[in-house]
Nucleic acid binder design. Sequence first.
DNA 1: GAGTTTGAAACT
DNA 2: CAGTTTCAAACTC
Length: 286
Amino acid sequence: MLTLLPSNQTVMQRAPVVKQVYPGITQQQQQLQQHILHTTDAGHHESAILEPALSNFPPAGHIATTTQAAPDTSKLKKPCNCTKSQCLKLYCDCFANGEFCSNCNCQNCFNNLEHEDERQKAVKQCLERNPQAFHPKIGKGAKADARRHQKGCNCKRSGCLKNYCECYEAKIPCGSICKCVGCKNSEGVDGHRSLMSLADAADLRHSQLNTASSKSLYEQKSRTPLSLSPHHFLKKCTIEAIANCLILQCKEAETAKCNDSTTEKVILEEFGRCLSELIHVSSSMK
DNA sequence: GAGTTTGAAACT
DNA sequence: CAGTTTCAAACTC
């Protein structure tokens, strides 16, 4: 019943790090970009090399691999609601992600082809202020499964347990680079961070129960879908979270060089703890 | 849906 | 670089 993930894949890795392809540029520019991308560390953005060459381009177009066609962002992208920034500041998620606004609810939007000049100026301004401005905020940590926020968060009042926190939003624990106050999103000493995902899934279900009728299709699709039917509670994200807890426990047992029976015991105990947590959160929302 | 809170980004 | 303001998203009622 439980579909265990490969040990090198965690719930924390839902957003893959991919090469970015810049839209609206000439073939020659694209070739230059591809050359630069291929001569740098695959999957990472090397600012010192990229920026001088790409500073005249839209910052970081549709997220796409170099071998795939760009996705239809009108279906995948979350629409922005900017009113004052003209979608030319990093406040605007579309702009910050290097995308043109499309199907957004923004007002006086300049983040489109019709205002390319203004857009280029804004891009340049942002890059002058911060050369890393258009780089992904979530980078890769030292371990393959340890994604980290590049700048760290500065949360003060949310305990880093709300989506205001960029780390929490990205489903990664806060790290030493963060300057947050009263953080409750640190990686637990026992390494049971995946329970956070479990709680998140339960939280999501709770909010969906309350707002399912009023949410747009996009909003419902943008998060992991959980059916409203109680017997459908164990959706993929929840199962993944539990599986990751078990895998972590297994790894810890391996590290501690436990024998088979002890390993089996701690995994079963962990499974029991997960189920108990699941029952607790599901019963508390009735 | 309106109003409030929050923290990143921008500005001084 | 620190403090303040602006902004849009998240959240609450």
